[in-house]
């Protein structure tokens, strides 16, 4: 299974579209948002706040991208080819999920590095470790959602569904525009989104607080929902293969 993960990660990192739109673009957006002072508060605070927003956006995008790749694999006959090798079907699913957890790393790391070295964000070691861990582990629900779409839909439809899902979740979750400036009703919705709770954990840590239990619970709830969705999609794909 390690060999499978390695192969899949290599494929993703050689994908120029992903490197440009999944890794480089969030960095550019981060630098634009912070230098143009589009985020609220003083510059230093904005650099920190938007660093978390954009890292969350980048990580989520990479997780969804992985799911779109799965739909392409299906169209290319790659999943069928894998079924003709001794690799167990469960190992393929697990390998694809692990791939998702690996490819989010460069997307998140690029933003954190830009925050540190370009925008001079300073946090203590404990905060960095917590933020990295939370941003990384928090992509799991999105990886599952993306894989669910990938198993359920055809190549192009999965790509569109994943793009639309990540955009909607990014906006509604307040990753682009802070939810503090949302009208009341939208703010109320936003607080229930997986994206908001995902980023909120790291915002808490960045401002020296403990992650809010409410956000942990909401994100875990979405983890369960997306996990069940991925499982249902996988079963359905298995029946029709």
């Amino acid at each position: 299974m390690l060999g499978y993960v390695r192969l899949e990660v290599v494929r993703v990192l050689r994908d120029v579209t992903f490197v440009v739109f999944g890794i480089a673009m969030p960095v550019v957006m981060y630098l634009i948002f912070t230098t143009l002072a589009l985020a609220p508060g003083d510059r230093e605070k904005a650099a920190l706040f938007v660093m978390v927003s954009m890292a969350a956006y980048g990580g989520m995008g990479a997780a969804f991208n992985n799911g779109s790749g799965l739909a392409e694999d299906k169209a290319l006959g790659w999943l069928r080819q894998l079924r003709l090798t001794p690799l167990a079907p469960a190992a393929v699913v697990a390998g694809k999920a692990i791939t998702g957890m690996v490819v989010v790393v460069p997307a998140i790391a690029a933003i954190l590095l830009a925050g540190t070295f370009v925008n001079g964000v300073r946090l203590d070691a404990g905060q960095w470790i917590s933020i990295i861990a939370l941003l990384w582990a928090g992509t799991i629900p999105f990886t599952l959602f993306g894989l669910g779409n990938g198993y359920r839909l055809t190549g192009q439809a999965a790509g569109i569904a994943n793009f639309a899902s990540s955009m909607t979740l990014a906006v509604a979750g307040g990753l682009w525009i802070p939810s503090d400036v949302f009208p009341g009703w939208l703010k109320a919705v936003s607080e229930w989104t997986p994206t908001h709770s995902y980023a909120d954990l790291s915002w808490n840590v960045a401002y020296g607080e403990a992650p809010a239990p409410r956000s942990v619970l909401i994100l875990c709830g979405w983890l369960a929902v997306f996990g069940l969705y991925a499982l249902a999609s996988y079963r359905r794909a298995g029946r029709s293969a």
Binding site: G3, Y4, R6, L7, V10, R11, R14, D15, D73, L76, G77, W78, R80, Q81, L84, T85, P86, L87
Partner: peptide, 24 residues
């Protein structure tokens, strides 16, 4: 199979080595 099964962005060697590696 009749068609498909090849993926993009890997070399011939990488692909074959991976499939071979799934066998004992």
């Amino acid at each position: 199979p009749q068609e498909g099964g090849l993926i993009h962005r890997v070399t011939v060697g990488e692909l074959i080595r991976f499939v071979a590696g799934t066998y004992q």
